[in-house]
């Protein structure tokens, strides 16, 4: 069953241009994505490519100077403000990037306790704390008293209760050491095996590949390719989009090949043509004519006119 369905999502920021005039900058542009039950979908891409905004848009926590269009639905229903209020913190949970998302003036234990929690959830959380080797004392600490590793575990435990159906994890592993990464990923895997859908947002392809079923590759605010995890192998012949191939071949363990040009286009998204056109080795005149439409290809999905 499809848990989360994002259709043609666009997000743009408002900012002051000159005096009181305001301009829009598109950060996410025409994004489609689906997460099914028991599936882990990883979203990978450069920082600033709009990955975190996707998470915030689904959770309805975008800042106010943002314009959103498109549809986000959960279990086939459009996720509007009322439904969000009902599901957020119960069936849909966010594992945020840092403790900055916790209230600094409230003890950790009180914050973990959602209004909808009954005795069952409290007990469940206590077992989870034990499993994660967090002492009961941890609940009595304020967010600033948590060490980096403890903070990650606490943030993780906000999401990992049984009634959660969909977890959105925003960069759960940056700067973590090998063993911690492995442990964190294993936790997501075990949740998915219980039927939970996981949207894993990360810039670490390597980590994503270890647990994800499908990988959505972000470039300039849109998914350029959705590939199966097993497509990432060898020198990337199975991959569909030239950016994905470049990303795969640029990994230190796979050749460390730099791409010519300056990498990701910045500023206002390129309005005409393929956003990757200026850096792409196989770009032709057709690429500048219009944005490539998404199409299905070999069990995945790609936005490139040349892919075959």
């Amino acid at each position: 069953m499809t848990l989360l369905e994002v259709k043609d999502l666009s997000i743009s920021f408002l900012h002051y241009a000159k005096g009181s005039r305001r301009d829009k900058t598109n950060v996410v542009d025409g994004l489609d994505l689906e997460v099914h039950e028991g599936e882990i979908v990883a979203v990978v891409g450069a920082s600033g490519s709009g990955k975190s905004l996707l998470a915030h848009a689904v959770m309805g926590i975008l800042p106010k100077n943002v314009l959103v269009s498109g549809d986000v639905s959960y279990k086939g229903e459009r996720l509007d403000a009322a439904r969000l209020k009902r599901y957020r913190g119960t069936e849909i949970a966010l594992v945020p990037q840092s403790v900055a998302f916790l209230d600094p003036l409230m003890k950790v234990g009180e914050q973990l306790h959602a209004p909808a929690d009954g005795r069952e959830q409290a007990a469940e959380r206590r077992t989870l704390f034990q499993k994660l080797k967090l002492s009961r004392q941890t609940e009595k600490l304020f967010p600033f008293q948590l060490s980096g590793g403890m903070a990650r575990k606490v943030l993780f435990s906000t999401a990992a209760v049984a009634r959660t159906r969909l977890i959105i994890a925003d960069e759960p592993t940056p700067g973590m050491h090998e063993s911690d990464v492995r442990e964190a990923l294993a936790r997501f895997k075990s949740l998915a095996e219980k039927g939970c859908g996981v949207l894993l947002i990360t810039h670490d392809i390597e980590a994503a590949l270890r647990i994800a079923d499908r990988i959505a590759v972000f470039y300039a605010g849109t998914a350029v390719e959705i590939a199966r995890a097993e497509d990432f192998s060898g020198s990337g012949e199975q991959l569909r989009h030239p950016y994905t191939k470049a990303l795969w071949r640029a990994l230190p363990q796979n050749g460390f090949e730099p791409l010519k040009g300056a990498g990701q286009a910045s500023g206002p998204a390129v309005e005409l043509g393929c956003p990757f056109g200026s850096c792409c080795g196989s770009a032709t005149g057709r690429c500048a004519e219009g944005k490539p439409e998404p199409r299905e290809l070999r069990g995945g999905w790609v936005r490139c006119v040349h892919a075959s």
Partner: peptide, 17 residues
């Protein structure tokens, strides 16, 4: 210090080269 940890692989390779 973790100079390219927050960057994608393509940018990382370009910067280090």
């Amino acid at each position: 210090d973790e100079m390219t940890t927050m960057l994608d692989a393509v940018t990382q390779a370009q910067i280090w080269h």
